[in-house]
Computed example of a mutant assay.
Amino acid sequence: TVPHRPVPPVRPTATPTPEVLLVQRSTLWTTVGGVAAAVAAAAIAVPLLTAGGPAPAAVTTHSAAAPSTPVPGVPHVDAAALAALPEAQYSAVVDGLLPWDRTTTAAHVFHLTADAPLFGDGRTAPVARFAKTDFLQQPTTVVGLRRQGPWELVLTPARRQLPSAAGAGGAAAQTAAWVPADLLTAVAAPTARVVVSTTEQSVSIVSASTGAVQQHFAAGVGTADTPTPTGVTGYLEERYADPSQGTGEHPIQLTSLHSSAADEPYGGHDGGLIGLHWNATTSGAVSHGCVRLSAEAVAALDALPLGTLVTVE
């Protein structure tokens, strides 16, 4: 069943849809009410800046460690060239982005002063752009991982590769890219982060400084065929309420994570986004990758600022 495309209030032309409202029609997969809404997701960790090798250790700080090789300067990108680049939004697939296959416990949060070019590992030519405002016409939330000279390594809400093209290893559930740091303006850093446990089928809000659990809730997670991605960190990208998706008046919490098991399980074109949203069933391996929560849990997440890290274990 293909869920209808949700239309969040205040949204421009392209709206994320499906499932669970969670985000985008084909990308967040979850069955809601009698209508399949979905927030899909299964994810298989893919190496950070390489295509293979052992999983790197968790990143715990936003550091500016000296690089072992010279840091490239930021190439000039004129307005026409910037406008011609694909936008790194939830439904996009951009080959030049970097796979991010690790967990992160600390990050900085920014807004953009203007549309910004995004660069891959070589940083010689841009591969995509971040728009100054997102699909709800709100300031785009940018999560920074590491500063290196004139650059900031940031997480993006776009995919690098579709699962159907990735082979048995699966596609990266999260991507990263380099952005010129002078186009970023810092906003208040979140004081908490979200931890989803697929084994315990729970969601916890923990202190960003101490790691102490502040709130803990039961959660429904992905099935064996459509697993919720694990061993990776994304962030709360946006939120909106859309009762037509079966989540009632409870805001859908969209994350930057994507399914690495299926392209568009509901036949849409929203990128298989993973969301955290309300559902009557809040336990078991029951979703297409999204995380199903009670009204109380959704309200707790809704109180967190955009840019809050979401780690799935």
Rank of each mutant, 00 (worst) to 15 (best):
P3M: 06
H4G: 15
R5A: 14
P8H: 05
P8Q: 00
P9M: 10
P12V: 13
P12L: 11
T13S: 14
T15F: 04
T17I: 03
V20T: 12
Q24D: 11
R25T: 11
S26P: 13
S26A: 12
T27D: 13
L28V: 10
W29D: 14
A36E: 13
A40K: 10
A40P: 15
A41I: 04
A42E: 05
I44A: 12
L49R: 15
P54A: 14
A57F: 11
T61L: 09
T69W: 01
P72L: 00
H76F: 06
V77M: 06
A79N: 06
A81T: 15
A83G: 07
L85D: 04
L85A: 06
A88S: 15
A88D: 11
D95A: 15
P99D: 15
P99W: 13
P99C: 09
W100H: 15
R102Q: 12
R102G: 03
R102V: 08
T105C: 05
F110W: 13
A114T: 13
L118V: 07
F119T: 01
G120Q: 05
T124C: 06
V127E: 01
T133L: 11
D134A: 11
Q138I: 12
T141H: 05
V143L: 03
Q148A: 04
Q148F: 03
G149L: 03
P150G: 03
L155T: 12
T156V: 15
R160T: 12
R160F: 01
L162S: 02
A171K: 01
A173Q: 00
T175S: 15
T175D: 01
A176N: 10
A177W: 05
A177V: 02
P180K: 00
L183V: 11
L184Y: 05
L184Q: 10
A188V: 10
A189Y: 00
P190R: 05
T199G: 13
E200F: 08
S202G: 02
S202F: 04
V206C: 04
V206R: 00
S207G: 00
T210R: 07
Q215A: 08
G222K: 07
P227H: 07
T228H: 06
P229W: 09
V232M: 02
L236G: 03
Y240H: 12
P243D: 09
E249T: 15
H250F: 11
I252M: 11
H258E: 05
S260K: 03
H269Y: 12
G271M: 04
G275C: 04
G275P: 09
N279P: 08
T281G: 03
G284P: 04
C290W: 10
A295T: 08
V298S: 06
V298W: 04
V298P: 09
A299K: 06
A300W: 02
L304D: 03
L304M: 08
P305M: 06
L306R: 14
G307T: 08
V312Q: 04
E313C: 06
